[in-house]
């Protein structure tokens, strides 16, 4: 049924820290590796080692330049399904293959009933769904539904593959319906925000803004402009001495 389940008791999702993401794409490859053998399997590639490679990925990392409060910043920006509370990608589906789980809010595509009409991908403003031309069905982030409840995995591995792979801890997984969960507290503390909130789909996934460099204490102290800093050997010390003598 592609009608929305309404308020779900759990809202499982990701919190992505744009301050610590270094744009290494480890989450992308880890996601691909798990999901090409998991719920969404396969994630087909075309010409993967050739001149025009393409394929279905469930997670993409952009890099942007921008100005925040007058400072130039580089921001790496992972983009995947946000498991919205009220998304059109579910309601436009003519077959019921695209659905939102009532128990935990995960948005999934049933690969056995999807007819591959691509309308759900048209309805998503985030470009989060990718069609698999070989499989003939739509692919999207499953929040690693086959990991997070998987009792054959050690408990510490019951997290989405992207979260496990992130080397800087920029991705966190949890229940955003629970105000006391670690992810909810982090969102409240850091001023987590929605992507394209004007659209009104109420994304569950939140993003944390880059920290203000002034308060983060990472503003480099400028080196004196016209002095040789920290001469390393006798010759440099001699040049520095001459430089100082001539300058005075």
């Amino acid at each position: 049924m592609t009608s929305l389940p309404g308020d779900t008791p759990k809202k499982l999702g990701l919190v992505i820290d744009l301050d610590t993401c270094v744009g290494c794409h480890a989450c992308v490859t880890s996601c691909k590796e798990w999901n090409t053998g998991g719920y969404s399997a396969p994630l087909t590639d075309h010409d993967p080692y050739g001149a025009d490679p393409s394929g279905a990925f469930l997670n993409r990392v952009h890099s942007f330049e921008m100005e925040i409060d007058g400072r130039g910043r580089t921001v790496h920006f992972p983009r995947s399904c946000l498991h919205c509370e009220e998304p059109d990608c579910v309601t436009v589906c003519p077959t019921g293959a695209s659905y939102k789980r009532a128990e935990d809010g995960i948005v999934l595509v049933n690969p056995d009933t999807c007819i591959g009409c691509k309308l759900c991908s048209w309805a998503c403003p985030y470009g989060a769904r990718e069609y698999d031309h070989d499989d003939g069905v739509m692919k999207k982030c499953t929040l690693c539904v086959d990991r997070i409840y998987n009792e054959t995995l050690p408990e510490e591995d019951r997290e989405p593959a992207c979260v496990k792979a992130c080397p800087t801890g920029a991705r966190a997984f949890g229940d955003l319906a629970d105000p006391d969960s670690a992810v909810s507290r982090n969102v409240a503390e850091r001023g987590g925000f929605d992507l394209l909130k004007e659209f009104g789909f109420k994304p569950v996934n939140k993003y944390l803004p880059p920290r203000d460099p002034a308060t983060a204490g990472i503003v480099p102290t400028p080196a004196p402009e016209d002095r040789i800093g920290a001469p390393r050997d006798r010759l440099e010390r001699l040049f520095a001495w001459i430089d100082n003598r001539l300058s005075d």
Partner: peptide, 14 residues
């Protein structure tokens, strides 16, 4: 709006 970072402006793909 698509990026959503409060106070961000002049965004361009790098």
């Amino acid at each position: 709006q698509a990026i959503g970072i409060p106070g961000a402006s002049g965004i361009r793909p790098l």
